[in-house]
Simulated assay, not measured.
Amino acid sequence: MRTVQRQGSVDHPLRRGVLLPARELAVAWSLIALIAALAWVLTVGQARGMGIGPGTMGTGLPLFLLLWLAMMAAMMLPSVAPVAVTWAKGIARQCGGATRALRTGTFLAGYLIAWTAFGLLAYGGLALTGSLVDQHPDAGRWIGASAFALAGLYQLGPLKDICLRHCRSPMAQLIRYASYRPPLRDLRVGLHHGAYCVGCCWALMVVLIPLGVMNIAAMAGVATLIFLEKLWYRGPQLARVAGVAFLLLAVLAVLAVFQDWLLPGLQSPMTPM
C-alpha cells in the first residue's frame, strides 16, 4: 500500500531527521568551538588590560560593542551550538558543504546581532550606573542590590520560563522557519532565536554590573549557568535555584556584607575597601 501524506503536513528535512555525515558534523561542532575559544582569548586579553571598575571604564560605544560582541560569542556560542548544528542538519539536503557552512555562519551572525542590539542597552545601563557611583560612591550597594534582585525575580518569573522552554526545545520553531524565504532566511532564523535567547538570559547579564562587566571569573560563571540551564535536564530547576541565590545576594549587598568581592564592578576609587 502507498503511504498517503496527510494534507497540510510539512515535509521538511528538520521533521524527517536528516543527519549530516559524521565528518561534517564534527567539523560544524569544531568550528563553533574554535570561534568561541578565540572569542575567550580576545576577551581575556582585553580584560587584563582594563581591570574591573564601574561603568564603561572609559570605552566609547563602538569599542564597547566590539568587546561586547566578543563576550557574547565566548559566553553564548557553546550553549547555542546544538541549535546551530540542528539547523545545519535541516538544510543538509538543500545545499553542498561550503554553502551549508555559509548558511550556518549566517545563522550565527543573526544570533549575535540580536545580542549586539542588547549591548546598546547594556552600554546605557553601565554608563548610568558608573556616573551614579562616581557622584555618590555609597550608591554602589543599592545599585548592586537592585541588579541582583531584578535578576532573581526574573529568574523566578513566567517570561523566563517561556523563553527557556524555547531555547531548550526549539524544534517546533525551526520547522516553522522552513516557510521563511531566502536570501535572508538564515539571518532571520538566527535573529529570531537570538531574541528568545536574549529574553531568556538578559537578567543574567545584569548581574555583571555589580560583579564587573570585564570580570573573567564572573563571565565564566554566568556562561556556565547559561549552558546548564539550556542543556542540562535539570536546567529549569537550576534557573530557579539561581533566582533564589540572586535574591540572597541582593540582601547581602544591602547589608554591605562581603562588599569587596560582591560588588567589585561598583567600587569607585573613592570608596574605601
Rank of each mutant, 00 (worst) to 15 (best):
F64Y: 10
L102H: 04
P158I: 09
A172M: 13
R16F: 05
P158D: 14
G96H: 03
W115R: 04
P182M: 02
L184K: 09
P269S: 11
N215F: 09
L238V: 11
G235V: 05
L225W: 04
A28V: 06
L248Y: 12
A81I: 11
V189E: 00
S179Q: 13
L19W: 05
A172K: 14
V18F: 10
G199W: 11
W261H: 09
I143H: 00
G157K: 03
M57E: 05
D161F: 08
E24C: 03
L108I: 14
A26T: 15
A117Y: 04
V133H: 04
L20F: 13
I143M: 05
L38D: 08
F64G: 04
L159K: 10
S30K: 00
L67R: 15
I209H: 00
V44T: 11
F107S: 10
T224M: 09
L156H: 05
T43K: 06
P54H: 08
M1T: 08
V213R: 00
L65N: 03
L159D: 04
L31P: 01
T271F: 13
L153K: 08
W68M: 05
H12P: 06
P82S: 15
V83A: 09
T59V: 14
P82F: 14
P62K: 03
Q155A: 13
L66T: 11
L228S: 08
A149V: 08
V257G: 02
R168D: 06
G140Q: 03
N215G: 00
W142E: 02
A220H: 07
D134G: 09
I162W: 13
R141A: 10
W202Y: 14
F118H: 09
G8N: 07
L112R: 02
H136R: 09
G265P: 01
G235R: 03
T271R: 15
Q5M: 05
Y180L: 12
G60K: 04
A22C: 08
P62G: 06
G90K: 06
L31K: 02
M270S: 09
G140T: 08
P54R: 04
V85C: 10
G60M: 10
L19A: 15
C201A: 10
V198L: 12
G194N: 05
L153A: 12
I52C: 04
I32G: 01
W29K: 02
L34E: 05
A114Y: 00
E229Q: 15
V18A: 15
G221C: 12
E229L: 03
R15P: 04
G265T: 01
A127D: 14
T129M: 09
Y233H: 12
G8E: 06
V85G: 07
L211I: 09
H193L: 11
L247V: 01
M72D: 01
M214L: 15
I216F: 06
D186N: 13
L102K: 12
T86N: 10
G125V: 02
L255V: 15
G96W: 11
M76L: 10
K230V: 06
